[in-house]
């Protein structure tokens, strides 16, 4: 009796193994493409859907995360890459991958239409091609501001005023490209020494440094904090959802950064990866990029984004991403030294 019971158990266990086995190996028939994405969710979903419509037989595996985790994952998988193509990673991250020899150069169709600033200028064919650019911005919750009796800040300098003490969040530059962008923006505007002095003053007002770039703005939208140093897209969405929020482009100007597409060296599906790179650089895809970002890679595509803060393009400060890639480790180490470990809050 016991023997049969044990056998039944064993059989059940084996059946379980077989089921998991078939789900693991059974799906490997059709052509596949593994995309690692580090862009806004809606943007990414729309691009993949449009590409899928062109290639109905392709099985697309997609993985979307913040920029930091995606780059960390690519580095961890360096010896045995799993991704075929990277979509929407920030350029300093891509440059870092390129310098480790992890990207496959490729000139997508229509490369001549891409603005110079939006491509790898050090190599032909380029290792990466930019799709769109985004910039820093400040989200301000007007309802909370009114409740606490503080005025809307107009400039980066305003943020260091004592009245905003404990009301500001900012992304941790160690994990978030948005956080790093804000810092290199300040360095470009103020010069490096003054930028650190500015951050020392700002640090007094920051309540916490968070993991993701959109989180400060969303926290401000939820009233958890008053001010979030972030980028415009999440703020624009919150305004459209009815949150009492404004997105401010500080007077001094804002750093901007390009995000782009690149093919992984050693990709298992290089053909499909090239087709996606072609697509990302195409006019159709750029019209999608343009729904989310005012500034895109292709010449002549620039429709205004509804509810986007005005004056962004004039305020843009050009950032040399090769300089950023070179100095990234040094800046982050300095930042960590100064602000990485806030003392226990009293």
């Amino acid at each position: 009796m016991t023997t049969s019971k044990l056998r039944a158990r064993l059989r059940m266990f084996c059946a379980g193994l077989m089921v998991s086995g078939t789900t693991v190996f059974g799906a490997a028939q059709a052509e596949e493409l593994t995309v690692y994405g580090a862009m806004a969710k809606g943007h990414f979903a729309e691009l993949i859907a449009a590409f899928q419509a062109q290639e109905p037989d392709l099985k697309i595996n997609q993985l979307l995360d913040s920029n930091g985790p995606i780059i960390a994952r690519l580095l961890a998988e360096e010896a045995n890459p799993r991704a075929d193509v990277i979509l929407g990673a920030s350029v300093p991250g891509l440059v870092m991958l390129e310098e480790r020899g992890m990207l496959e150069p490729y000139a997508p169709k229509g490369l001549d239409q891409i603005k110079d600033r939006f491509r790898d200028r050090r190599s032909d064919p380029p290792h990466w091609v930019g799709t769109d650019a985004w910039a820093s911005a400040v989200c301000f919750n007007t309802a909370e501001g009114e409740r606490l009796g503080v005025a809307e800040p107009q400039s980066w300098q305003d943020l260091t005023k004592p009245e905003y003490k404990g009301m500001i969040t900012m992304p941790n530059p160690n994990s978030s490209a948005t956080g790093l962008l804000a810092i290199v923006g300040w360095i470009a505007i103020l010069g490096e020494d003054e930028a650190w002095e500015y951050m020392d003053a700002l640090h007094e007002n920051v309540s916490q440094y968070v993991h993701s770039g959109s989180k400060p703005c969303r926290m401000s939208a939820a009233g958890e904090v008053v001010i979030g140093i972030s980028y415009p897209a999440p703020g624009v969405k919150a305004i459209n959802d009815g949150v009492p929020l404004t997105v401010i482009i500080p007077e001094e100007g804002v750093g901007s950064e390009v995000e782009g597409v690149a093919i992984v060296r050693g990709a298992r599906n290089p053909d499909a990866a090239r087709r996606l790179a072609d697509f990302a650089a195409s006019l159709e895809a750029h019209e999608i990029h343009n729904q989310y970002y005012a500034l895109v890679g292709r010449e002549g595509v620039s429709n205004p984004v509804p509810n986007y803060p005005e004056g962004e393009e004039e305020a843009l400060v050009d950032i040399d991403f090769y300089w950023v890639a070179e100095n990234r480790d040094r800046i982050l180490a300095e930042w960590q030294e100064r602000y990485g470990r806030k003392d226990e809050p009293k």
Partner: peptide, 10 residues
């Protein structure tokens, strides 16, 4: 988490 996910510093 910060070191690994954020800083790529394995």
């Amino acid at each position: 988490y910060q070191k690994v996910i954020g800083g790529f510093d394995f």
